[in-house]
Simulated scan of single mutants.
Amino acid sequence: MGAFDYRNFDDRRKNSASAKQMLLEKFKSRPPADDPEMIAKAEARAAIARAREERAREREAARVAAEKAAAEEKRAREEAELAAQIAREEEEARLAAEQKAAELIARKAARDARYAARKAKARR
């Protein structure tokens, strides 16, 4: 508390009064609101605020565009993967059908061979 080491009550009261007087003088020394310099400063602050808001809108628009592009790319990639999967499944189904048809033909040939052998045996 060394900073508040005033010697007596009168010193503290004088210091308080002088501090209040300095604040009052500072407030009175402010230029009025219709002062051209104050108006120019206010306009400059408003222009800076508008520019800041515009940059924020541009960043938001860029972010939205990037998200939209990423979503579109993801959707295109998923569609390509789905098309590839459908093509694989169709190829597998085609191969399975070919294999089933080949097995059916082989079974029919074996059956026909047995039938022909039985007929040949019966004719002898």
Rank of each mutant, 00 (worst) to 15 (best):
A106V: 09
R13A: 03
A120S: 10
A120I: 02
A97W: 12
E67M: 07
A44Y: 04
R111H: 13
A44F: 08
L95K: 14
F9A: 13
A120D: 09
R63L: 08
V64C: 11
A117P: 04
N8Y: 03
E73C: 04
R75F: 00
A122I: 07
F27Y: 14
E58M: 14
A65Y: 07
A61Q: 15
K41Y: 09
A61K: 11
A116S: 09
R77H: 03
A71F: 06
Q85L: 09
A87W: 00
A110W: 10
R52A: 07
A122K: 15
L23D: 04
A76R: 14
A101C: 05
E92A: 12
A84S: 02
K121N: 09
A117F: 00
E78P: 01
A110P: 02
K41H: 14
A49F: 11
A83M: 03
Q21P: 00
A96D: 11
S29G: 11
R55S: 15
A3F: 14
A66T: 09
R63W: 06
E43N: 13
E91G: 08
A113Y: 11
D10K: 15
E98L: 11
E54S: 05
D10E: 14
A117W: 01
A106L: 07
Y6I: 14
A101Y: 02
E67K: 02
R94V: 03
D5T: 15
K41I: 10
K20S: 08
K41E: 14
D5N: 13
F4Y: 13
R77W: 01
A3K: 12
E67A: 12
R77E: 11
K28W: 00
S18A: 15
A113D: 13
R7K: 15
K121D: 10
A51D: 09
R124I: 09
A17P: 01
A66I: 07
